[in-house]
Design a protein around this nucleic acid. Structure first.
Lengths: 118, 118
DNA sequence: GTAGGCCCTGCCACCGGCGTCAAGGCAAGC
DNA sequence: GCTTGCCTTGACGCCGGTGGCAGGGCCTAC
C-alpha cells in the first residue's frame, strides 16, 4: 500500500502520514524507487492515532498507545503505559470540565443580569 | 499613570498592554517624550479584557465589551453587541462541554475495560 | 558624568498539527 | 516522447497571546 492509498483509507492526507512517521509513530518499508510501502497493520495504527488526537491527546502522548497496538494487542489502551496516559488525560479533562462549567455559569449569569436587574 | 504602573496594577506586563493598544483596545495619551500616559479608566478596561480572555474570548471579541465600558456603563456586557457575543460564546461553551463530556465518557469507559472485560 | 531604571519601536520565538508550495523523480498510457 | 498523476524532500505559513531581545532615548540621583 502506497502513501496515497493509506491516506485515502484512513481519511487523512499523505502530508499527515509523513508527519506521523517523522514523529516516529508510523513505519514504512521503502520500494527501490524510494516510495513508502505500508503494511496493512499501519492502517490500524493511523486510526489509533486519529482517535487519540480527537480525544485531545497531543501526538507525543499517542506513542504508548501505538506501541501497545504493535505489541499485538487488540486495543491501544490495554497496556500499563497507555492506561497511565489515559488516567492523566481523564484527570485533565475533568479539570477542564470544571473550569468550563464555571465559565459557562458566569456567562449565563451575566446574560441574565443584562436582561434585568441582578 | 505610566505603562509600568498600569501593568503592575492590572497584574500583567507592559508588553501585553502595548499589544492591546496595537489591537485598538487600549488608549493612551503621549507625554512629550513619547511615554504612554494612561487615565485611571484604562485600568478597568484592562481588567475587562483580562476577564474576557480568561473566559475564552479571543481578543477581537473583547472589543464590544470595552466599547460598552467606554460608553459609560458599569459593566462591559450590558450593551446589545456585547450581549450578542456573550450568547455566541455561551453556545460555543455548551458545545465544548458536550464534546468534552463525550470524550470523558469514552476515556472512563476505556479505563474500565482495561481493568477487566467489557 | 555616570549608573540604574524606566520608557520607546520593531522583530523573532513559541506551541502543534498540519496545509501548501517548490522542484524534482518515477510510472504508465497514448 | 509527452502527458498525467503518483511519489520524494525541504521549507515556510498559520493561529493568538505573550516573552524576550536589540538598540536606543529619557530621567533621577549620586
Amino acid at each position: 500500500m502506497l502513501i496515497g492509498e493509506l491516506a485515502g483509507r484512513a481519511g487523512t492526507s499523505a502530508r499527515t502520514l509523513r508527519y506521523y512517521e517523522a514523529q516516529g509513530l508510523l513505519h514504512a518499508e521503502r520500494d527501490a524507487n524510494g516510495y513508502r510501502r505500508y503494511a496493512e497493520e499501519e492502517l490500524r495504527v493511523v486510526r489509533e492515532i486519529r482517535t487519540r488526537l480527537d480525544a485531545g491527546f497531543p501526538l507525543a502522548d499517542v506513542r504508548p498507545f501505538v506501541a501497545c497496538l504493535r505489541a499485538g494487542n487488540d486495543a491501544g489502551h490495554v497496556c500499563p503505559d497507555a492506561a497511565a496516559v489515559l488516567r492523566r488525560r481523564l484527570a485533565e479533562v475533568d479539570g477542564l470540565l470544571t473550569e468550563l462549567g464555571a465559565v459557562r455559569n458566569r456567562l449565563a449569569e451575566q446574560l441574565a443580569c443584562g436582561a434585568g436587574p441582578c
